[in-house]
C-alpha cells in the first residue's frame, strides 16, 4: 500500500525533483513522463513546505501548460531567460555531454534513424539547468563520441547561457563539471554497483571520492508523489500514471 518502500521509478522521479530544487520555472518536453512527474513533485513539495512557488510547463498537457503563443512561446521564453530547467535525452550521449537525437552511422543515410533533433540545438544553449535523462544505461547509449552532434555540450566564443547540469540514468546519477567538461559520478541507484556503472558506460568519467547510493524519497515526498502527482500526471500520461499506481499498490 502507500507505506510500501519507494520503487526504482519513484526514486528516479524524486531524484529529478531534487535536481530541480531552487528553480522558478521548469519545462518538460513531449513524451517525458518521468521528468514531468519530477517537475510536478517539486511544485507539490514546495507548496506543501511553504517554499517559493514553481511554475511548470508540460508540453502535450492542457492542464499543466499555461502558454498561449503556440509552438513559439517555449523557445521565446527560454531565449528571454525565463525557463530555468529543461530535460534532454539522446539516442547517444557522450562524455562531453554532446547529444545525438538523429541516428547512428554516417549522416544522412543513417543505419538507425531516430526522430530528429527537436528543439535541442537551441534549448541546450539557453536553459541554464539542462538535465540529461536516459533510462537505458548501456554502452550503445553512453558512447565515447556521438555519431552526430544534435547539440554540443559545450561552446567556445558563442553566446551561451545554458548547458548540461546532470545526467540521470536508470543506474546512476552524474554531475557535469563545466570546467573540466566531464561527468562526475555522484551516486548509483540501489542494486547497481560502481563497477557495473563503469562497465556499462562507454565514455570515461570522474567519480566522487565516495560514491553514495541514490537516496530514496522521504515519507512526505513519497506521499505527495503517490497522491497528488499521480493524479496530475494522469491527464497527460494516463498509462504511465496507472503503472505508477500499480507499482505502489503491489
Amino acid at each position: 500500500m502507500t507505506g510500501a518502500p519507494a520503487t526504482d521509478r519513484e526514486i528516479l522521479i524524486a531524484t529529478i525533483t531534487d535536481l530541480l530544487d531552487g528553480v522558478r520555472t521548469v519545462a518538460v518536453g513531449m513524451s517525458s513522463p518521468i521528468p514531468a512527474a519530477g517537475a510536478m513533485l517539486l511544485r507539490a513539495r514546495n507548496e506543501a513546505n511553504g517554499r517559493a512557488p514553481v511554475r511548470i510547463i508540460v508540453l502535450g498537457s492542457r492542464d499543466h501548460n499555461f502558454l498561449t503563443n503556440g509552438a513559439f512561446e517555449l523557445f521565446d521564453a527560454a531565449a528571454q531567460g525565463r525557463i530555468d530547467a529543461f530535460f534532454l535525452g539522446g539516442g547517444q550521449i557522450d562524455g562531453q555531454a554532446n547529444i545525438n537525437l538523429v541516428g547512428t552511422g554516417a549522416y544522412p543515410d543513417n543505419e538507425v534513424r531516430w526522430p530528429g533533433s527537436f528543439g535541442s540545438a537551441f534549448l541546450y544553449f539557453v536553459v541554464p539547468r539542462v538535465i540529461l535523462f536516459r533510462e537505458e544505461h548501456s554502452p550503445r547509449v553512453f558512447v565515447e563520441k556521438v555519431d552526430f552532434v544534435s547539440a554540443p555540450g559545450h561552446s567556445e566564443g558563442v553566446a551561451r547561457s545554458g548547458g548540461p547540469h546532470a545526467l540521470l540514468t536508470g543506474k546512476a546519477l552524474f554531475d557535469f563539471d563545466k570546467a573540466r567538461q566531464r561527468f562526475r559520478l555522484r551516486s548509483v541507484h540501489g542494486g547497481a554497483s560502481v563497477s557495473d556503472v563503469r562497465a556499462l558506460t562507454g565514455f570515461d568519467y570522474d567519480a566522487a571520492d565516495t560514491v553514495s547510493t541514490t537516496p530514496a524519497p522521504d515519507a512526505g515526498t513519497l506521499a505527495l508523489l503517490r497522491g497528488r502527482v499521480t493524479d496530475e500526471l494522469a491527464e497527460t500520461y494516463p498509462q504511465f500514471a496507472a503503472t505508477l499506481a500499480a507499482g505502489f499498490a503491489a
Binding site: A71, F72, F75, A79, S117, F118, G119, S120, A121, F122, L123, Y124, F125, V126, V149, S150, A151, P152, S155, V158, A159
Partner: peptide, 27 residues
C-alpha cells in the same frame, strides 16, 4: 531544430529575407 524552422516562418510572414536565431553553432 524547432525554433529555427519557426524563425523561417516568422521571416516569411514579415517579408524579410532571413531571421537570426541563437544556438546551433557547434551542432
Amino acid at each position: 531544430t524547432c525554433p529555427a524552422l519557426l524563425a523561417g516562418f516568422v521571416a516569411g510572414q514579415k517579408g524579410v529575407p532571413f531571421m537570426a536565431i541563437r544556438g546551433l553553432i557547434g551542432s
